[in-house]
Amino acid sequence: MNQFVLQYGKSVELLLFPHILELGMKKNGSIQPDSFPVTTAEGLRIYHITEGRFEWHINQQLYVFYPGDVALIMPGIALGAENNILAIGSYIWIQVTVQKLDNGHIQPGEWSALSDAEATAIGKILCLNNLPALSRFSEVCNIIKSIYTELIGMEVAYQTRINQHIDELLIQVARKVTRQTRSPRDFPQAFTDLEVLLRQDLSHQWTVEEMAGLVGMGTTLFTEKVKSYSGFSPISYLINIRISEAIRLLKRTDVTVTDIALDTGFYSSQHFSTTFKKLTGYRPSEFRKNHLRNIK
């Protein structure tokens, strides 16, 4: 395959694909000054190295890439080479737009056939793990090549096929990130990591699918594992974390009960109040009053 670069807005091939910002293959045979300056991009960039050895700075950290490795650059993150010089070698890459959510997470756009829950899970996996270097990952190369072939071939239903390929790419990358982050042999560790993530974003309306996705498991197996490991269903376990945090906040007087409800992930102060009372016997406001009275 020869070198090519397609860019949305410039290349007619991408007219129907506003979410594919860039697609290309680069073969670099000589050292040139300023051949790889620092760039940031609004889309998610995925590079697969096919030949050579590249030393790239991603978000100011140095990573070394060898053939078969993948560089994963999140939207808005800087990518550059040592001394701005592109080393000899070749790579293939794609840049796709993703929606940015309020909490900083990303989600694929409407072109994607992924369900909302699965898309959120993938977005979370990519954002929370912050893993820009994925090793031995040639599936990425094949998928990008297939997208290119479809773009050029324009056979029947190529539009659908290309969007499927991008979904496939995101799924593969998310799975690889999960596998590379944690051992599939250590459920306790995976569960502890999950708990830390839940606590970092307690106001998010977590679904079981998302939680399962973060551990890299299907929903059914995940629910079964959590139940036997923790004694709780995933949702009950999550509610316990929410209530624990709520108790901590109720003991401080500078946060309103409504704020506590929303901060700890309840739909409303009514939902918070009912859940809290069911478990503790107190309404949140009673709990606070009671606690303050006990001090005096």
């Binding site: 569960f191 502890t192 708990e195 830390v196 490991y229 923790s230 004694g231 709780f232 009950s236 316990n240 974390i241 209530i243 624990s244 945090e245 108790i247 901590r248 478990l279 503790t280």
Partner: peptide, 27 residues
Amino acid sequence: KGRYPTFHAQPDYSEQDPEQIFITTLY
């Protein structure tokens, strides 16, 4: 049984959330 986690904010640290233990106990 009901499980609660141990947090290791630093390698030598082992900590547990007292409110989570309490809620787990009630539950």
